[in-house]
Design a protein around this nucleic acid. Structure first.
Lengths: 340, 340
DNA sequence: ACCTGGTTCTGAACCGAGTAAGCGCGCTCA
DNA sequence: TGAGCGCGCTTACTCGGTTCAGAACCAGGT
């Protein structure tokens, strides 16, 4: 027997299609005895309801969509998205939801995918990453009425619920730590400036540096790639009063920065301290191992999936903050011993 | 107007639902004039056919599935899968197919997903990674009749078409290069031994070492994680006659190996040469930059997607070989200058 | 005996597409 | 003139579920 349908089960169990549907979905309308008989038959025939038919008849498609718009070269290296996806799937699998993954060239294409998915009835909801301030996707999704969760700071997510941590707090922790080690000239290699979380980090960075009286709290913009991180680092280390500590907005740029320091004869950590935001296994493998702002990215995924499923079920959902990234001090940060 | 259906278009264009279906699918049965009118209306209403209804009515679901069974910690770091997915999507998007991504805990769970997807009518075909010799998924998929493409060597893919490159050839290139640099004691840190491509590389490694008269061509098994690579490297470098060159089965283990060499005071490349299989941006950022076996992983994805879509269309499909990985010599390999 | 209320189940409509069968029309050709 | 044919389009049914209206039945109360 191939691909049994509820009609097959109904015949086998001696009931109508309707009864089978009620029984399988755990809704009232069938007696416990009949329900059990139906479930037994379904199990015996290894029945799985056709998801297309179910979705067509008004039930959920049991699929959520995720689009990523970064270039593959960046994506492949950053563990962020894979860890995020792992977390998402943990929760989605638990509820028998599937994940539709789509790479997009830009926001417009990404938005076009949301629109198409919605009108094709492919997904019950979507997850939104890398939001910018004033991101057109937010109002568009609000208008579509497609359940959506933003993985990013709530500032830019409009009425869409979001999942993120308090980046400002983590930034304060990092800068205060560097200041406590005696650093005065602290710089930062930031991520893509248009992303909302980048702006938050930049503001927090300048604010805390001002509060601590650190001069020249400069942020150089980069784009998460190793090359851009290396370029930014060269620029910073070539300056008159070069910084004695640099905070990078992701780990791959920090790795690049470490190499540039080597290349320019700047000793890490004796002459330069380095902190990476996000902590991939690579950070621990380098020499010296990188001090990093560690956070449980998988937990974001779990939480985001949880919220999205709740939103799909029509439950009221509000933005939540996960635990902020905390500092994992390793060999790349130290008190200055060989001032330049 | 929300979510227009073909009935809406039919009314608007003054024809029947059937005519609309024919027109939209580019099949005969409507005159050019009518077709154009229908397409104009569809475009104006921004119509997209409900994929559930379409799939239910016997057409394709336009979805392919991919399951990954490696632990997220490994997945996140290795750029392989992200690059593969990017390549897949390039081709899938071109044909308006979507990608269903699923993490699985093991082969059995992975197989269960294939089964469920098939019986739920969710996917038109699947992609299979990390095949082992005698992998149960191969006969299971053959029996299911679900179109499938193996991303791996054809040896273990049974009657399923596969996409891979000639790893043996690349291994020969790497070992001959090391031999030409004067290395005699060459070792290897291999990937998971059960994977079919690992076996191929191991066989090729021992064969070429034997042919070149290199003694002790030992392969230490590891599991692609940095920790396992570091452990394996420590073991190798602690041996009586330690190797003067090590080939790693992925880049992350090579990074770990480089750090262990540092840690043990073994200079790279003067005392130890290192080659990584697969070339992530990180390889170029290290000091010294890692010599790597480079291959176009995205191209695998494009090719695999292409074959899968052909198989779904019912076209005859045969396994293909992509270009083999080729050596990108960098600073981590050199002629021995400080023999131990 | 009759009404009420509740549970259990059936039957049929419906979701939105695809598609086989059929029908009218105009054209060609015997 | 009428048979035959092909084009263009409509009609009606199908896919496999969900869901709603109502039938059948049973029990209890009056």
């Amino acid at each position: 027997m191939k691909r049994p349908t509820i009609a097959d089960i109904a015949r086998e169990a001696g009931v109508s299609k309707g009864a089978v549907s009620y029984a399988l979905n755990g809704r009232p309308g069938v007696s416990p005895a009949t329900r059990e008989r139906i479930l037994e038959v379904a199990g015996r025939l290894n029945f799985h309801a056709d998801s297309n038919a179910r979705a067509l008849a008004g039930a959920k498609a049991r699929v959520v969509g995720l689009t990523l718009q970064r270039p593959p070269s960046t994506l492949g290296v950053e563990p962020f998205f894979m860890e995020l996806i792992s977390g998402l799937e943990l929760e989605l699998s638990r509820r028998s939801y599937a994940l539709l993954l789509q790479m997009a060239a830009g926001r417009d294409e990404e938005l076009a995918f949301y629109r198409r998915w919605h009108s094709e009835g492919r997904v019950d909801g979507v997850l939104v990453c890398d939001v910018r301030t004033g991101d057109p996707r937010v109002p568009a999704l609000e208008e579509l009425g497609l359940p959506a969760i933003v993985i990013g700071p709530p500032d830019a997510s409009g009425s869409l619920p979001s999942v993120w941590s308090d980046d400002a707090q983590s930034m304060v922790e990092a800068v205060e730590y560097l200041a406590a080690l005696g650093h005065r000239r602290v710089a930062r290699v930031g991520g893509i400036a248009e992303f909302a979380h980048t702006a938050i980090r930049t503001d927090a960075f300048t604010a805390v540096c001002a509060r601590l009286g650190l001069p020249d709290a400069v942020t150089v913009a980069a784009d998460y790639t190793g090359e851009s991180g290396a370029r930014a680092t060269r620029r910073l280390l070539s300056a008159q009063d070069r910084p004695t500590a640099i905070i990078y907005d992701n780990d791959i740029m920090a790795v690049a920065g470490l190499t540039v320091a080597h290349e320019m004869g700047v000793a890490v950590p004796s002459q330069l301290s380095i902190i990476a935001w996000d902590d991939s296994p690579v950070c621990r493998l380098l020499h010296p191992p990188l001090t990093a702002l560690t956070r449980d990215i998988g937990a974001y995924g779990v939480r985001a999936a949880h919220l999205l499923l709740a939103a799909i079920d029509g439950d009221p959902v509000t933005s939540t903050h996960g635990a902020p990234a905390h500092l994992s001090p390793r060999g790349s940060t130290a008190r200055l011993t060989h001032p330049a």
